[in-house]
């Protein structure tokens, strides 16, 4: 049993299927997420596939601010994902609301609606930063499985 468990855990860390949800983003971060899948960045190296279906996904990539209409959709997608799962908020809008924090139809960052594991800053976040974000998310998953330490927060380096 221990062996199978080990294998499954290895699979979890080697095959994070992502579902990307555009939650009111300006498309800047969206196209950067897509750019990650393409030859120059090719995240399939890490086993990442964009599955487009929350039921198959392990990682939810959210770009953009949450507004009153899409917060239900976001919550719904999060609930449809089977455990274990991770959420990555991408870009200034996804992390905090960015420039749109004070708009009347904006709820704020993704963390207002669902728990977020990794915040990727940037406006828009570079594909490099998004790859870093996924790697950090895998570290978080690893820590949650009890296989490693939580990644540290570096404020100034």
């Amino acid at each position: 049993m221990g062996l199978l468990e080990n294998w499954i855990n290895k699979g979890r860390l080697k095959s994070p299927w992502v579902v990307h949800f555009d939650c009111g983003s300006c498309n800047g971060c969206d196209i950067e997420v897509l750019a990650c899948l393409t030859p120059v960045f090719d995240v399939e190296r890490f086993g990442i596939i964009n599955v487009g279906n929350p039921k198959h996904a392990d990682v939810l990539l959210v770009t953009g601010t949450v507004n009153h209409r899409n917060k239900k959709v976001l919550k719904n997608i999060y609930d449809q994902m089977p455990d274990p799962k991770a959420v990555i908020a991408i870009g200034a809008c996804g992390t905090s609301g960015g420039v749109f924090r004070e708009c009347y139809n904006v709820v704020g960052g993704v963390d207002q609606v669902i728990p977020v594991d990794v915040y990727v800053p940037g406006c828009p976040a570079k594909p490099d930063a998004i790859i870093d974000g996924v790697v950090t998310a895998l570290d978080v998953v690893k820590a949650k499985l009890g296989l490693g330490e939580m990644p540290k927060v570096t404020v100034i380096d």
Binding site: D22, C23, G24, S25, G64, T65, N67, R69, N70, V73, V99, F100, E102, C103, Y104, N105, V106
Partner: peptide, 14 residues
């Protein structure tokens, strides 16, 4: 529509 509506034009007033 409305999944991306932010109301950006109103920011002009602040």
């Amino acid at each position: 529509l409305g999944y991306v509506h932010r109301g950006l034009e109103t920011l002009a007033s602040i």
